[in-house]
């Protein structure tokens, strides 16, 4: 793959610059092909929602964006994905650095079995974002504030993160991702394990985070996609069927499969 000639893939609507873009991305699990060639751009400071029925490949695609698929032995990725124009599957590119720039929040809250404080500073410590105690303190405070958790936990920073409620745990995981100061945050159905109130919290948070970060969110919940995203991509059976402004997708889908899905005929 010639990365030089494709450093800046043309943006779809030409107005904004693409933070990340995918061209012809195919993913294989052993012999089975899970994605059949995905082309999509992700713009800075916007929320892109990936929707589609289960097994459509949206989570698989999300995981290719920070190479989390590397941890699965039999998984193979073809095609081009760029971050700021650089191919992220370039053998010279460093995956650890990539994941520091493209953070991830998972479906199930997965705080480390350590204190809240240690959970937050885990990433900054790894990447050398700070060295002194007061710097770490500042990062912890700022990240927790950004994740809207500060007021709830500021008095018990040294208690284990696993002791929080589900919604709080997920916000802790978001704070943990934010603390590394990534450029892009990937969220894999971050609310699927949470109750409606906690979900509302997280959705609000996502909207605020958009100011500083580029966000890609996988969701099952179409109302959620409509609420939090600016653009939406609809996946179906390993294909990207349609991508466009969220409003457009939900009010005036071009493809009948999209229409079928958002009107609830299948999914």
């Amino acid at each position: 793959m010639d990365t030089q000639t494709m450093t800046k893939p043309a943006a779809e609507n030409g107005t904004k610059s693409a933070k990340m873009s995918a061209r012809g991305v195919k993913v294989f699990y052993g012999e089975k092909r899970a994605l059949h060639g995905i082309d999509v751009d992700i713009y800075e400071n916007e929320v892109l929602a990936l929707i589609g029925p289960s097994g459509c490949g949206k989570s698989t695609f999300l995981r290719t964006l920070n190479r989390m698929n590397d941890t699965i032995d039999i998984c193979r990725v073809e095609g081009l994905i760029t971050l700021d124009g650089a191919d992220i599957y370039d053998p010279k590119l460093d995956v650890v650095q990539l994941r520091a720039r493209v953070g991830m929040v998972f479906q199930k809250p997965n705080p480390f079995p350590k204190s809240i404080y240690e959970n937050i500073i885990y990433g900054p410590k790894l990447h050398g974002l700070a060295t002194k105690k007061d710097e770490f303190d500042a990062i912890v405070e700022q990240s927790l504030k950004r994740a809207g958790l500060w007021n709830e936990v500021k008095d018990r920073l040294m208690e284990p993160g696993t002791g929080l409620s589900g919604g709080q745990q997920q916000r802790l995981c978001i704070a943990r991702a934010v603390a590394v100061s990534p450029e892009v945050i990937l969220m894999d159905e971050p609310c699927s394990a949470l109750d409606p109130i906690a979900t509302a919290h997280i959705e609000e948070l996502i909207d605020e985070l958009r100011e500083n970060f580029t966000i890609v969110i996988v969701t099952h919940n179409m109302q959620q996609a409509a609420r939090v995203s600016q653009r939406t991509a609809f996946f179906h059976l390993g294909d990207l069927v349609e991508v466009g402004n969220t409003e457009e997708i939900f009010t005036n889908p071009r493809d009948e499969r999209t229409q079928g899905y958002i009107t609830g005929r299948y999914g």
Partner: peptide, 27 residues
């Protein structure tokens, strides 16, 4: 040790040895 903890650590940009030493072994 659940895979989700490993994912969480890798997702933050930790290397394998950092994940082992700072997440898996303590857990």
């Amino acid at each position: 040790v659940p895979q989700s903890l490993r994912d969480g650590s890798y997702g933050l940009g930790a290397t394998r040895s950092e994940t082992v030493k700072q997440v898996i072994l303590p857990a």
